[in-house]
Design a protein around this nucleic acid. Sequence first.
DNA 1: ATATTTTTTTAGACTCGTCTAAACTTTTAC
DNA 2: GTAAAAGTTTAGACGAGTCTAAAAAAATAT
Lengths: 217, 217
Amino acid sequence: MLSYTEENYLKAIYHLSDDGTKEVLTNAIADAMSTKAASVTDMIKKLSAKKFISYEKYYGVKITKQGKAEALMVIRKHRLWETFLVEKLNFDWDEVHEIAEQLEHIQSPLLIQKLDEFLGFPTADPHGEPIPDKHGKINIKAQMPLFDLMPGYKGIIIAVKDSDSTLLKYLNKIGAIPGKKVKLINKEEYDGSLEIEIDDQRISISKVVSENILMAV
Amino acid sequence: MLSYTEENYLKAIYHLSDDGTKEVLTNAIADAMSTKAASVTDMIKKLSAKKFISYEKYYGVKITKQGKAEALMVIRKHRLWETFLVEKLNFDWDEVHEIAEQLEHIQSPLLIQKLDEFLGFPTADPHGEPIPDKHGKINIKAQMPLFDLMPGYKGIIIAVKDSDSTLLKYLNKIGAIPGKKVKLINKEEYDGSLEIEIDDQRISISKVVSENILMAV
DNA sequence: ATATTTTTTTAGACTCGTCTAAACTTTTAC
DNA sequence: GTAAAAGTTTAGACGAGTCTAAAAAAATAT
């Protein structure tokens, strides 16, 4: 049984490690957790003793299979609760994160099973992030053109289809680079152009451009 | 802002004090919280310094207006979540308490407001306990004849209308005494007799008897 | 290739909530 | 009305998670 804090560390390490493939450095964890490196070192020792991560002094940590499974369950709960808040309680997309941060720590496998069922077994949360299934299976590579997103939904840019440098330069100028979050505000019926939000700024892009931006969903 | 533990103490003190009317002794709190008297004394000092209770050494504690308001908010959250679990997630009556004990500590006034709305502003939880409204107003004296309960619902016996000793003797024999929890299993259409559950035993009572048992709802 | 900077770890301390053991106060019994 | 019992508080300690300051290791620069 993990504590609230241990779960948060594990989740942060999972996110920072690209699905557990890369090692994560102490300071990166400290930044993510808004804490100090010394505190991270202490927790690393604890999680390492419990076999949720493997740790070599001065060279960062790697999440174990067991640790990954725990992290994915927390992420599953977080995303199911976010879906509940938006779909059932009519929260706005941007209001749910803090509440889900609390709800994700509720301990009851039956509750999550019933919540999943109540929501109709969703595969993605309102942010477009995939929801791990009950076995911890997650569809990491899911992607779709920005053009196919529904108005009001958000995603993360993971790639650009056409590598024409004029397109890439343009995308760079408007800030539409991989890793960036984009929210689709509106789709213009006439020419298929999109109004999107990046870095809190609203801009308009053409249909052709939006078909070349691949989003994580 | 109260900690998880402080909220639990305050809730226990509220319940033990009969809506804040009586003082509560240290050992009673220790029993309710499954902890030791010494730990209770420590927490009492903390809550007293924060003005949630008033405290005189060796003579127990009394909850203040402020403490009562906090306790009622926790109770409100607990009962709304229990209602959600039973009504929306199809939990059984007896499975929800532990989960609601966790959910009641989620901090977000907006969440509770939206949950209340989603549930249709219920006034009682599935156990029949009244749900305090958003201002902390609670209908403590609400009562109804056992006969008017809905099948599947539970309540606490608070009084008996007719004081005919033969009725009281009968009620005593079957265990239907004030303070006892009763669950209505089924209502017989033909003669209005009820099948009820008391102390895990199912018994049948007549319509006349059930109209004389007043339940807290 | 050594000196400086950056990163990480250790050491010691603090808060929160808990405990045991001992001291103290109140109640009960005779 | 005093002695024993019961209940309560104090004192000191511990584990979890955090911190600051200092030491140690690794990376970087010249």
